[in-house]
């Protein structure tokens, strides 16, 4: 039988694994609690504040093991099952520990045709890991992701749910990896609208940390 038929093996998650964080670590500071209160005040029901609270928890703990989800649920006074359901539905909530920098390379649609997979393959080679894996030093994780809404600057990637890096090339990836190794996260880049280049002679935002203009995308070499 050809190997394309890969029966989906759904492994059920262990909902009570050994906790990663100790009881002492599992607390929100007063400031964080206050923040969660403001989230609650934005919605008619406490359940609705769960997404923002999980975001806050992920920023603090790095990922969302069951005990962190429970902490978020308890702080909001909602059932654990609800928070767990939400945390496992959305892909940006990390269920397992990730590298310090998660490189989410878009390989979808426009990016596929403009070299998204070339960038993934190059990173794999450079970092000596496969897509979905983390380097031994715990610094980098590579993920191929769906359209990130920056198709005009394909190929592109996002660093750990944060800044976008546009118009990727191998040289740009080299520079990015070096910068990240030195602890420097890329700045927010404002991509100049083509019409602004013509009408305003460049980017319109004088507060932009960095700007870039669109480029003719490269031709993809690999497509999967």
């Amino acid at each position: 039988m050809s190997d394309f038929i890969k029966h989906p093996v759904v492994s059920l998650p262990d909902r009570a694994p050994e906790p990663v964080f100790s009881k002492k670590e599992l607390v929100f500071t007063e400031a964080e609690k206050e923040q969660i209160e403001t989230f609650r005040a934005q919605y008619p029901t406490p359940e609705s504040a769960v997404m923002k609270t999980l975001w806050l928890a992920q920023e603090k703990f790095g990922f969302l093991p069951p005990e962190v989800i429970r902490l978020a649920a308890d702080t909001l006074g909602i059932p654990f099952s609800l928070a767990y359901g939400v945390a496992t539905f959305y892909t940006q909530y990390y269920k397992a520990q990730q590298g310090k920098y998660v490189l989410d390379v878009c390989t979808c649609f426009s990016c596929q045709l403009c070299g998204g997979y070339d960038m993934v393959r190059y990173l794999e080679e450079k970092l000596d890991i496969r897509e979905g894996e983390t380097t031994e030093d715990g610094l980098f994780t590579i993920q191929g992701v769906e359209c990130l809404g920056a198709c005009g600057t394909a190929p592109m990637l996002q660093v750990t749910n944060g800044p976008y890096v546009h118009n990727l090339s191998r040289e740009k990836l080299d520079a990015l990896i070096d910068a990240l190794k030195a602890g420097k996260k890329p700045p927010f880049v404002s991509v100049t609208l083509p019409q602004d280049e013509d009408d305003l002679g460049g980017n319109r935002r004088s507060d932009a940390e960095a700007t870039e203009v669109g480029q003719t995308p490269p031709a993809a070499e690999t497509f999967e």
Binding site: C151, L193, G214
Partner: peptide, 12 residues
């Protein structure tokens, strides 16, 4: 939003 194999992709 024009993307893909064009010389000057972007939002117009």
């Amino acid at each position: 939003g024009i993307s893909g194999h064009v010389e000057r992709p972007g939002v117009y």
